[in-house]
């Protein structure tokens, strides 16, 4: 979706158009879900949090100021707060390890190629879970949700420079972890 088109829908949604909000949902639900899913332990929990995020976004839309930052950064910030609130209510700490351990296996694992790919992803998930939480969140926002550096910075309330630094360090650390694994174990 073009930027102008999106801002048009945001304006319409701000003045009460549920139809435009539906378009916004279609645009953001998938990457937002990927981000929430990576931070939660089950599909159902992630779906509930996705729904909660969009309802909160609707309620808070009159406060959204396009001059203050991007819409996606604002939306991901709401999602992060919803996740934090969810874990606070349930008196649980976000478990970085279980996020990637509890993933449901993809439905189709027919070819050998798919199996190899899956094993590789499995190792990658394990390595990601060994990263500090702030590094992991940056990587999730950047590569799982495809947010730009600026949008990631807005969602995390950080400067673009610190996000860039965190991303660089996170990738370097991940690289080190990959090096520690023997080549045959990665596949």
């Amino acid at each position: 979706m073009e930027k102008d088109e999106l801002s048009n829908h945001i304006k319409k949604a701000q003045s009460g158009s549920t139809e435009s909000f539906g378009v916004i949902y279609d645009q953001f639900s998938q990457p937002l879900y990927r981000f929430i899913r990576a931070k939660t332990s089950g599909n159902q929990q992630a779906e509930d949090l996705l729904q909660e995020t969009f309802i909160k976004a609707w309620k808070g839309l009159p406060l959204f100021n396009p001059d203050a930052g991007s819409f996606s950064g604002w939306l991901y910030k709401i999602a992060l707060n919803a996740i934090t609130d969810h874990y606070r209510k349930n008196s649980r700490i976000i478990q970085t390890v279980e996020i990637f351990d509890n993933l449901d296996a993809p439905a189709s694992l027919n070819s050998e190629q798919d199996l190899d790919k899956n094993l590789s992803s499995e190792k990658l998930r394990q390595m990601l879970s060994q990263l500090p939480d702030n590094y992991r969140t940056v990587l999730e926002l950047r590569f799982l949700s495809d947010l730009s550096i600026k949008e990631t910075a807005q969602a995390l309330n950080k400067s673009s420079l610190s996000v860039r630094m965190a991303q660089h360090r996170a990738l370097k650390k991940l690289q080190t972890l990959i090096k520690q694994y023997p080549e045959h174990e990665l596949r």
Partner: peptide, 22 residues
């Protein structure tokens, strides 16, 4: 990492269901 994101995709029917609910 980008490939990994595919493992977290929201199924189409769930996406539609959540949309209607929202």
């Amino acid at each position: 990492l980008s490939k990994l994101s595919e493992s977290f995709n929201l199924p189409k029917d769930s996406q539609k269901q959540i949309r209607n609910s929202v």
